[in-house]
């Protein structure tokens, strides 16, 4: 069964779990989320639930979204995300989803927005090798040849070039849940998670 929750990345630390080795963990404030809308195969063409996370001032939302929350009968949420589910009947509008949907030992996929790196060259952005720094080399960090002369007479699409890096949707798969605090809705996940502190992340059970 697919399940998921919206969370906020709080930061990283380390824990001594199971009387064993040191585990690097990311601390995530996961939920509480409320089901705002159910999307069904008949009406929308697919089965999904829309869940809301966080609180926002009522006067900060525009009238259409205010009406959307009013229809669901819940307070205004800060963000909305959709989650595809197979069985829509498991959920009710207004139902609360907490961190307890995951247990220690589960594996999750986490989606977030990566940290913005600005305009970066090909070495950082695409992992190019670059040239020699010294010994008369005049080729340092440039992208090099783009692969063309008379033939093919153009630069191929998708050629790796300098440009904006980061601030992109990134999913990390198969992160292990180390600990869950259902009261405070805190999830500890082994390893790093995309994005900066206080960034929104989406946790879903692992697809692989």
């Amino acid at each position: 069964m697919s399940k998921g929750i919206i969370g906020k990345k709080l930061g990283m630390t380390q824990v001594f779990a199971g009387g064993d080795e040191l585990i690097p963990v990311t601390v995530i404030q996961a939920g509480p989320c409320k089901v705002v809308q159910k999307k069904t195969l008949d009406v929308d063409g697919y089965n999904a639930i829309q869940i809301g996370f966080g609180t926002a001032k009522a006067q900060r939302v525009n009238k259409p979204s205010a009406g959307h929350f009013k229809k669901a009968g819940i307070e205004v949420a800060r963000m909305l995300r959709e989650l595809r589910v197979e069985n829509i009947d498991d959920y009710e509008v207004g139902q609360e989803i907490g961190a307890d949907i995951f247990k220690p030992g589960d594996y999750v996929d986490i989606t977030g927005t990566s940290k913005g790196k600005g305009f970066q060259g090909v070495i950082k952005r695409h992992g190019f090798g670059g040239g020699r720094a010294t010994h008369g080399s005049e080729f340092h960090r440039a992208p090099g040849a783009l692969g063309g002369h008379t033939f093919p007479g153009k630069v191929f699409k998708g050629q790796k070039l300098p440009g904006h890096m980061g601030s992109k949707r990134v999913t990390v798969q198969n992160l292990q849940v180390v600990d869950v605090d259902p009261v405070r809705n805190i999830i500890l996940v082994r390893g790093a998670v995309p994005g900066a502190k206080n960034g929104a992340v989406m946790l879903r059970n692992a697809v692989k």
Partner: peptide, 12 residues
Amino acid sequence: MNPIERIEMNQM
């Protein structure tokens, strides 16, 4: 206390 501090305090 923030959650990270609490997790760390618990293991000290």
